[in-house]
């Protein structure tokens, strides 16, 4: 296909610059709301499916395996293990997994004073003081390496 006559001069080709500024306000959802309320109380909540027995973190309204409503929210002890980590801007970010739980949390890990971060290190959540908590993941200030691991 040829260009229409008179448009072979590419200096005539135009473009149009504009923007699309979009702002959003997202609700946390039913399970997200429970998760947020848990964090505020210094708890990590997961959801449990009675059909397959699996526990999920973050919690979900439904079991992604069985596609049925989750049967309950359960408190997950705040002790996990570094599944993988990355370091950027002087900070270490890790995917932290918890025993017997599907999923996990992405969070900041405080570097140990001696030694290096390693996959498999055991970590625990350090919550902010109750009055500073807002009901989101930053209510956990960071994860720290548990001693004797």
């Amino acid at each position: 296909m040829s260009l229409p006559d008179g448009l072979r001069n590419t200096s005539q080709a135009k473009n149009w610059v504009d923007s699309l500024p979009l702002s959003y306000k997202y609700s946390a959802g039913v399970s997200g709301q429970r998760f947020a309320e848990g964090l505020k109380q210094g708890k990590i909540l997961g959801s449990k499916c009675s059909k397959c027995g699996e526990t999920f973190l973050p919690p979900s309204l439904y079991c992604p395996n069985c596609f049925v409503y989750s049967s309950e929210y359960v408190e997950i002890p705040p002790y996990g293990e570094i599944y993988s980590f990355a370091e950027a801007d002087g900070k270490a970010i890790a995917l932290i997994r918890f025993q017997g739980v599907t999923g996990g949390l992405i969070h900041v890990v405080k570097r140990p004073s001696a030694g290096k971060l390693k996959i498999g290190l055991r970590v625990s959540a350090v919550f902010r003081p109750a009055e500073q908590r807002k009901g989101d993941l930053t209510d956990i200030e960071f994860f720290e390496i548990r001693p004797h691991t």
Partner: peptide
């Protein structure tokens, strides 16, 4: 309830 706010400013140059 718990809400998250987020803004995106997308800029385009559309070829005419």
């Amino acid at each position: 309830y718990s809400f998250r706010k987020h803004s995106v400013q997308l800029r385009y140059a559309w070829d005419a």
